[in-house]
Design a protein around this nucleic acid. Structure first.
Lengths: 343, 343
DNA sequence: CTGAAAGCGCTTACAG
DNA sequence: CTGAAAGCGCTTACAG
């Protein structure tokens, strides 16, 4: 198995091709192709001979040739808003782990929460004819939606659910989760409950809706207690929001943060300034990210099912890519209230 | 521009091809191909005509065809140990941001710190003929190293540096960094300095070497103060290690953690048990991850240049993929001691 | 600076 | 269940 000389490269590659496998196993190239793709309409005996030749030669299919001939790549485009939020990192890992065993590679695109960037990414990914798409949420530009539709590529949406016809989605109700944690704070006797958020994406705003509903039911909604700042979240921002809210509204008795990193920052700021949590203010977060259980006091939060979400979305996409009909097109995975000592 | 009927798909795609562009612009397909790839040996006037036709038709090159014909894909394989350590997420983002404008897609592989997994990933990525490779560190299986060599694919190593001939690397001295932070603790008058680590990868062990060297120089190295536990790091583990060390070695006066997440956990554990930091024990971390500046007290650590490392490694790879000779094959980016109140 | 021919390594669609 | 032919959409290598 001599290597080709370094330069100049011969036009004909020195790699083992499907034709080589056909020659060695004594069948036609098409039969090899079929056997390799696990077709049932190949005699078991030929299948075995092909496999033996593959092993002997160390044959590896050329994905580019396959993609060109079949007009379908083995890539799945995964578009997420950010890698800075641990949530999406874990979602991504679950997706990759589910897709890889089936021979699909994930091509990750980070949209930075920007519809224009998402549109550009979609355009570039779609031009490569991905086998499938995994997208985050439902809010995108009209142009992006149109490209998606025209591409006819299998697609599953993550993070939220939709019952719209033809849409496949795996997620949970952000609104219900926002309502649930707010109700929990109300049940603890809190009345002046603030909502502090950064990175105002559609899901953060849905949680805001849930928060508002719960407070209106209880008759204690006050828009002045909504602190919505654009831009990325961080522990530092959470600390500043904590100080800001207490300074401007000394009667605030609870704060619901849209993400755990903010809430962790708040907990540390409280420690720094000697504000007792939860006695003086209760603190709640969202997502149950790493470290929230280690805080002082441990953080009350909502555990979101990103691992299962990634697995289920990938599973659904796998079915769609096999051209199977998916019976359960909308999967609501729910969420879990995790009550710790901060509330 | 009517769409093809849904099913069955015609063999000939309804997409605009390079031949269409050639027809519209009145030149040969090869000239279009050259113009598109920015060749200098195309008359400016023809270039303009081609560009006009591309715009008019909305032509997008078929990457599979290009890869098949040229035996080079537009993918760069990026192999990192983990996405759980924020460090690698930031490294990855920098790489992607640097590669994307040049038309290269990153294919991410997570090795989970496992040479066998890395070998498998390398095998699968190499079979797709990536345009280039970005790898983490130098420790890999002999089989993996051999595959790399035989592939002749351009490759840049990240995180560490090597002066070995033919090797391109961008990193910093993990050993020097470990030595530097340990010396800092010594300068603060500490003598019973422990090293606490998880995820015992080669870089964690290099930092350990640096730690040992500094302590031996000062004549106070004690192997009993090295706490090396396999498996993933976390804030929870850092907290347990803190309690463990203080219980078993009451005279410990400083702990150097191999990663900030452990150190953050230690700081919280100290707070929980009322151990004053740095009065009773100094705490130092590594990497300067998000939140370390928000801790109570803020964490002393080593800032590592992951963003620049990703950018420089990608830049070097870009040059190699253009078949340029890279003069500076070994780039040492250094590190920065960040002294805060925990030491 | 420009082009006609051949080929990259597969799969599709049609036969049998 | 198996195969011969054609083609996917580009680029390489050779001419001129």
């Amino acid at each position: 198995m001599a290597d080709a000389p370094d330069r100049p490269r011969p036009r004909s590659s020195s790699h083992v091709t499907l034709d080589d496998v056909a020659r060695v196993s004594g069948v036609s190239p098409i039969t090899v192709s079929r056997a390799l793709r696990g077709a049932r309409n190949v005699a078991p005996e030929l299948k075995a001979r092909v496999q033996a030749a593959v092993d002997q030669l160390g044959y590896v299919p050329n994905v580019a040739a396959r993609a060109l001939a079949s007009a379908r790549s083995s890539h799945v485009a995964v578009l997420i808003p950010s890698l800075t939020n641990q949530l999406f990192v874990e979602l991504l890992e679950a997706v990759q782990d589910a897709l890889a065993p089936h021979g699909y590679q994930s091509l990750i695109g980070v949209t930075h929460y920007d519809p224009a960037q998402e549109e550009a990414l979609l355009r570039s990914h779609l031009s490569q004819r991905p086998a499938g798409l995994l997208l985050t949420g439902f809010d995108r530009s009209a142009a992006a939606a149109q490209m998606l539709e025209r591409s006819h590529a299998p697609c599953v949406y993550m993070m939220e659910t939709s019952a719209a016809p033809g849409v496949h989605s795996v997620g949970f109700s952000q609104r219900d989760a926002g309502r649930a944690i707010t109700r929990h704070l109300l049940q603890r006797g809190r009345r002046r409950i603030a909502y502090a958020a950064g990175q105002l994406d559609p899901r953060v705003l849905l949680r805001l809706e849930g928060y508002r509903e719960a407070l209106r039911e209880a008759g204690c909604h006050d828009p002045a207690l909504e602190l919505l700042v654009p831009g990325p979240t961080s522990m530092a921002l959470g600390g500043r929001q904590f100080e800001d809210l207490l300074a401007r509204h000394p009667d605030v008795d609870a704060i619901f943060y849209c993400n755990d990193d903010l809430a962790q920052g708040a907990l540390l700021a409280a420690l720094r300034s000697g504000v007792p949590v939860p006695q003086r203010v209760a603190i709640a977060g969202f997502n149950d990210l790493g470290g929230s259980d280690q805080m002082l006091p441990p953080l009350t939060t909502v555990r979101t099912p990103r691992k299962e979400m990634g697995e289920r979305a990938a599973g659904m996409l796998l079915a769609l890519m096999r051209a199977e009909t998916v019976a359960e097109r909308t999967v609501d995975l729910g969420f879990e209230l995790v009550v710790r000592e901060s509330s």
